[in-house]
């Protein structure tokens, strides 16, 4: 049991940046992050930690008060807002202060001197987050961890971080089969096959709308401002289209439109990365079961799944069975960090 833990921490440390994202509030993201931070510390590794924005659902928007809950160890570099910095439970050295103000003040970068708890904060948008991760490189962390906020899967997009750890659990559904189904669907989307690199590179410049790729690799702009307009322009999709690349969001409506088009039989669909997928599991399954293949330009690595078997509603599912069920369905290492933490 201790072995997968060791390999998970080592695998995390082998990437430059890893996002930790929760499938729902109370899915156990914070525990998962704390588990990883402790694991890194135990191996003598020094991470940098930040977050995408401030997880609003965990913060009192009026008083901005919140209990610090991320435990940081010596030498860890962390980023938070000025106001959260004041309520830190660590002794730390200020290394830099950003110029852009967030709702909670500017961002402070500091290095921990005595361990303790902090509240993390970070840039509110993915472009700034990407820049911050790159800037944190100046402090030579072994890995930069991003506390990805619920509802902002984009923080875990391969455009921002190199890999991710998914937190799931009883908070998202009341039964093991349903938790497994929902988690497996997210994993399936996250692990959609990648387009050939050459094709992905050519499609990277498409910023909006939908383009059709024919069997010979020729790219045809359908002249749509967004994928929403596809419904009315469906007749314009060339019959020799092998792949439709959607630059924006893939929605239920888009999938339903494609499903009902006669010429889309055997046509593949591609998007930038998993964070562009906004369609429901039902719509996605309906599309793929009709033979539609889905690809991403930038694949994503899911390093592990952390589960919290306890729901905030009070019920609890069997941790071991849940881990086994998810692992079996997804093939991804699945751990209950609470059980693992107590191992010698």
């Amino acid at each position: 049991m201790a072995e997968p833990e060791a390999s998970l921490i080592d695998r995390i440390a082998s990437y430059d940046s890893v996002a930790i994202v929760g499938l729902a509030k109370n899915a156990g993201k914070t525990e998962c992050l704390n588990y990883i931070l402790r694991g890194l510390h135990d191996r003598g590794l020094t991470p940098a930690v930040t977050s995408i924005g401030v997880d609003g659902e965990q913060t009192d928007a009026v008083s901005h008060t919140r209990k610090p809950e991320i435990t940081l160890f010596e030498e860890t570099v962390f980023v938070t807002s000025e106001s959260f910095y004041r309520s830190r439970g660590v002794t730390s050295k200020v290394l830099g202060i950003g110029t852009r103000a967030t709702a909670l003040g500017r961002l402070v970068t500091a290095r921990v001197r005595t361990h303790g708890k902090v509240i993390l904060a970070g840039p509110p948008d993915t472009a700034s987050l990407r820049r911050l991760i790159s800037d944190l490189g100046a402090y030579s962390p072994d890995v930069t961890l991003v506390d990805g906020a619920l509802s902002r899967m984009s923080s875990a997009s391969p455009a921002v971080t190199d890999a991710l750890v998914l937190a799931t659990g009883a908070a998202i559904a009341p039964s093991i089969p349903e938790i497994t189904r929902r988690t497996a669907f997210v994993c399936e989307v996250m692990r959609l096959p990648a387009l050939p690199p050459e094709m992905a590179r050519r499609l990277e410049d498409v910023e909006r709308g939908v383009v059709a790729v024919d069997a010979h690799g020729g790219i045809h702009d359908l002249g749509l401002s967004s994928a929403i307009a596809l419904g009315s322009a469906a007749a314009d999709i060339p019959t020799d289209t092998a792949l439709l690349y959607v630059a924006g969001a893939v929605t239920d409506r888009l999938l339903a439109t494609l499903r009902q088009l006669p010429q889309t039989d055997g046509m593949a669909l591609a998007m930038r990365d998993f964070s562009c997928m906004f369609a429901s599991r039902e719509a996605f399954t309906a599309f793929t079961s009709k033979g539609g293949a889905v690809f991403v330009a930038r694949p994503c690595r899911v390093l592990a799944i952390c589960v919290n078997p306890t729901s905030p509603a009070g019920y609890r599912v069997d941790s071991r069975r849940l881990c086994d069920s998810i692992k079996e369905k997804t093939g991804i290492d699945t751990i209950d960090v609470r059980l693992n933490r107590n191992l010698p």
């Binding site: 002794t91 730390s92 050295k93 290394l95 830099g96 001197r113 361990h115 303790g116």
Partner: peptide, 22 residues
């Protein structure tokens, strides 16, 4: 170097306290 915290050298009590915390 442009960084700052309440350095150990400001007060002789700090360094031992911080060692004990860690």
């Amino acid at each position: 170097i442009p960084h700052f915290f309440i350095y150990d050298s400001y007060d002789p009590r700090l360094a031992p306290l911080r060692r004990r915390i860690n």
